[in-house]
Computed example of a mutant assay.
Amino acid sequence: MAHLHIRTADPSDLPILLSLYADMHDYDEQAGEEELSYAWKEIMDNPALMPFILEVDFVPVSTCMFIYVPNLSRGARPFGIIENVVTGKQFRNKGYGTALICHVLDCAWKKNCYKVMLLSGRKSEAVFRFYEQAGFLRGEKEGFIVYPP
């Protein structure tokens, strides 16, 4: 039986995340080593940013970023955002992504978050069902995005 382990990333895990991110998009703009190092240091130095890694038999197979946001409404309860959810292509449809999302949601509830949000750029019903099976509701709110000109 496979051994599942979920942990927050540590400073040495940047190559692991970058490898998993390669399976996230068909195309993604590339950053230089200096930009990546700077961004990674900012992530590691900010306790509100939590990159999680799910390992199976010590092999990293899935990751996502949890962002904890302090808040002044809703009884001053924080909210969370999940971003950059990806499971390596060869490990998909085995429940690993769901296990990771459920773990992150459990962490959010322990931090007293009143909600957790995510957006998906995918248009696939299978992706939508994946998030719904993890407890997310479609149609509760409308998402909007703006990109720089």
Rank of each mutant, 00 (worst) to 15 (best):
87 T>I: 09
89 K>H: 10
30 Q>A: 14
105 L>A: 03
118 L>P: 04
56 V>W: 00
43 I>V: 15
48 A>V: 00
56 V>M: 09
42 E>W: 00
91 F>Q: 07
6 I>A: 06
118 L>Y: 04
32 G>M: 05
36 L>A: 13
28 D>R: 15
82 I>P: 03
117 M>F: 09
6 I>P: 02
69 V>H: 09
83 E>Q: 11
19 S>V: 04
10 D>S: 11
44 M>W: 01
15 P>M: 05
15 P>Y: 07
35 E>L: 10
98 T>P: 00
28 D>C: 14
72 L>Q: 11
38 Y>L: 15
58 F>W: 06
95 G>K: 06
76 A>M: 08
111 K>P: 02
4 L>S: 10
54 L>T: 06
79 F>E: 03
21 Y>A: 10
113 C>T: 07
31 A>G: 09
36 L>G: 11
61 V>W: 01
45 D>S: 15
104 V>L: 06
64 C>Q: 02
81 I>R: 08
12 S>L: 08
33 E>R: 10
32 G>F: 04
113 C>M: 15
105 L>E: 05
36 L>R: 14
97 G>T: 08
57 D>I: 12
118 L>V: 05
104 V>G: 03
61 V>Y: 03
42 E>D: 03
94 K>F: 05
59 V>C: 09
112 N>A: 13
110 K>F: 01
88 G>E: 02
82 I>T: 06
15 P>D: 06
68 Y>D: 11
42 E>L: 11
